[in-house]
Amino acid sequence: MSSKQSQGIQTLLEAEKEAAKTVQQARQYRVQKLKDARADAEKEIEEYRKAKDAEYKTFESRHADDTSDTQSAVDKETDAKLAQIAESYKNNKDAVVKKLLDRVVLVKPELHRNLKKAS
């Protein structure tokens, strides 16, 4: 009976070793599948990124002309307004200086309005 028991124990040990091998293979398979899935996801992400970058560059190049046209129009308008301001300054400079000097130099001495009421 002890030989049958030892033979049964031996069979159980072998079955346990087989089960451990199967579990180890399953773990390795799972790890490999995870690595493959990550690599595939990274490839997909990189392809998506390249597609979106190309789409952005196309959009940017298509709208770059609009921006430069708008900028040149704004620059022309600014230059025209600056020229107008410079011309206005040149035409009115003498009159403004004269008005300022008249106000500063020509003073009419008179009593303050509050002093008049108190008297």
Results as ranks from 00 to 15, higher is better:
101 L>C: 04
31 V>S: 10
96 V>N: 02
118 A>W: 13
82 L>Y: 11
39 A>E: 13
95 A>H: 08
73 A>F: 03
114 N>F: 13
81 K>N: 07
63 H>T: 12
117 K>C: 00
10 Q>W: 04
7 Q>R: 10
65 D>S: 15
64 A>D: 05
66 D>H: 13
63 H>P: 00
8 G>P: 01
11 T>V: 11
63 H>G: 00
109 P>F: 00
53 D>K: 10
30 R>A: 11
6 S>C: 02
85 I>C: 03
67 T>K: 06
27 R>D: 11
48 Y>G: 02
86 A>F: 00
61 S>C: 00
117 K>N: 02
76 K>G: 01
29 Y>P: 01
108 K>A: 08
117 K>D: 02
11 T>W: 10
105 V>E: 12
93 K>T: 04
63 H>W: 12
56 Y>C: 00
43 K>I: 08
59 F>M: 04
108 K>N: 09
27 R>G: 04
50 K>S: 11
49 R>W: 03
18 E>A: 14
91 N>D: 12
68 S>Y: 12
105 V>F: 05
114 N>V: 11
119 S>R: 13
50 K>P: 01
74 V>W: 04
16 E>T: 14
9 I>H: 10
17 K>C: 02
36 D>V: 01
67 T>P: 01
91 N>S: 13
87 E>S: 14
60 E>V: 01
28 Q>H: 05
108 K>S: 09
94 D>H: 06
99 K>H: 15
113 R>K: 15
43 K>M: 08
80 A>I: 04
62 R>M: 10
55 E>P: 01
57 K>L: 05
118 A>M: 15
61 S>F: 00
1 M>K: 06
107 V>A: 03
57 K>T: 01
3 S>W: 08
35 K>N: 06
85 I>H: 09
43 K>W: 05
37 A>G: 00
111 L>W: 08
107 V>L: 07
118 A>G: 03
6 S>K: 11
19 A>L: 12
80 A>T: 07
99 K>L: 15
54 A>L: 08
39 A>R: 11
101 L>R: 14
104 V>R: 09
7 Q>K: 10
29 Y>C: 09
45 I>T: 11
